[in-house]
Design a protein around this nucleic acid. Sequence first.
RNA 1: GGGCGUGUGGCCUAGUGGACCAGGGCGAGGGGUUCCUAACCCCUAGAACGCGGGUUCGAAUCCCGCCACGCCCGCCA
Length: 604
Amino acid sequence: MSVSRTACDGRGFVTHLLPAAKARRMFLQLRAEVEDALANALTTLDLPAEDLGIEEPPEDVDAVLASSVAFRLAGEVGTAPPNVAGDIADAIDADDLTYVSDVTTQGPYVNFLPSEAYFAETLQSVTEDGFGRLPDRDTSVVVEHTSANPTGPVHVGRARNPIIGDAVARVLDYAGYDVDRHYYVNDAGRQIAVFTWAYETFDEADLPEPERESPEYEMVRYYRKGNTVLEDGDPDEVEDVEAEIQSILQGLEDGDEETYERVAEVVDTVLGGMQTTLGRLPAEFDEFVKETRFMRNGDTDDLVDRLKELDCAVYEEDAWQLDLSDFEKNLVFLRSDGTSLYTTRDLAHHEWKFENYDRAVTVLGEDHKLQADQLDAALGLLGNDTDQLRQVFYSWVNLPEGGMSTREGTGIDLDDLLDEAIDRAREEVESRLDDRTRGDLDADDIDRIARQVGIGAVRYDIVSKQPTKGITFEWDRALDFEAQSAPYVQYVHARCCGILGDVEADIPEEPALGPLSEPEERDLLRELARFPAVIEAAADDLTPHTVATYTRDLAETFNAFYRECPVLDADDETRAARLALVDGTRTTIANALDALGVEAPTSM
RNA sequence: GGGCGUGUGGCCUAGUGGACCAGGGCGAGGGGUUCCUAACCCCUAGAACGCGGGUUCGAAUCCCGCCACGCCCGCCA
């Protein structure tokens, strides 16, 4: 992690380093060059150049980029695709290109082969600490994620949110955005009123022992007991309780300071505990934005007034609502008792985001999809540019026997999962101690590795999958340390560190490409060169899992190099060049894992 | 009932129009360390890409229908 921290510190000077920063992104440079050359060739041939058909060829092809455009133009030209491909290749003079050495055809495909300059500049750029970071875009983006109701311990069912959200924020940061992470705190909902009443009512002596000595575990006992009373209590009692809950909600709505203080005590206490758990992932936030903020400052009232003015605003059954044509269901924004709803406040919240940021991303469970779409539509009607707002949806993690619920106390606590992960990782480390050939580990090392590997495995397991796919939680699957997991990738980083450990001083400042002619060396360079483009695509599409896929591919490519190419025992020139390659792999793995929020151990 | 999402070897997963007659992993079987960490590598077996139509020179990928699973359709959040 230290590597990327250094890179982070250097960001402020990015504008002064433009030439160097430019050279860091060889693949993107090459792609731009290819796009340009291809478009010119097509224009010269009097062919349409809208769709260039540029793609990455399969592994057994030497080209770095290719075009399948000849397929589509064949009909227009009136000849077979391979002939069209030949004409296109002939129309491009590779001598005019820097990073392309040759343009060839293979059947209908036009292939672009990388030049020595491409490899040489890649080798140079990968050893720079900030490799993979794109230039500052001068664009701020707020990533809102997690935003779980502060009612109790964070459980695994919702653990996907902080892990995906934090990775999205990190990837955007790498891609050059100015990122803030927000947790939107629901401190005005009914369940918080229930919680506040329960906390003020029950005696701790009547509650079960907490599962952990931590605020949210102690507090959730009141919440669960409160819900039990509401469900099973005798009707008269429940009626009184409902009146109390109503008065708390009304107090918040009226901006009553005392009510706010009562609720805040509960919310802040629980949230503090949840923050500690989330911090273990780690998922940290720049700001916790409370829902009541937009009630207390008048924004929600102003918003309601503006909503009433909209053409689609209707007053039906004593409640104000929006009749949104694209939705079956009306969006109620003011209850018949005059109070606002969650979505009403969220509208005010989002307008506040738009005022303070250029873009906004929200990570939400799939159960919020309709609500998010209605929010989007309403924001548009209020005159906001909703193109700035994007959501990442994920589906819940369920147990084989069903869903997880804080209220019912069903589910696996995230703390338990992380503890178990660390315990199992520790067993793995200890079981391997006897076989080690390098670097004895002391107790602190074992602690560190167990934590990095255990938590890394949990994070990676979640962040490496497409969020929309459902996950059924199983211990052994979540805590698999073998191939295609975080430890597999982390191990490559540790290997690089192992090789470089005693010879750091021998890594050349300006490495020579000449000695690197083995296919495994060239494959590794090609793979390393892709990293900035991977970051760019992951940020554009908000798909951090593609970065995880990349780390696996890179680890595999390095392992092939490791098998075939001895580093420390090679002749001086080869050794120096390979050290640079190992150094570049170390940096790239560290940065790619950092973009995912997974630590990169220096030894394992 | 309507909307959204998912469906890839026994299990998990990548790929969402082109060189892929599908790439990994787990599990199964076999092999590899006098040599920079074997949390590794290599080999073998295993797939009608949910089913049926269609569009296209070309479909796991796009369109239509169907099936299965998940989520949503509250003056809850």
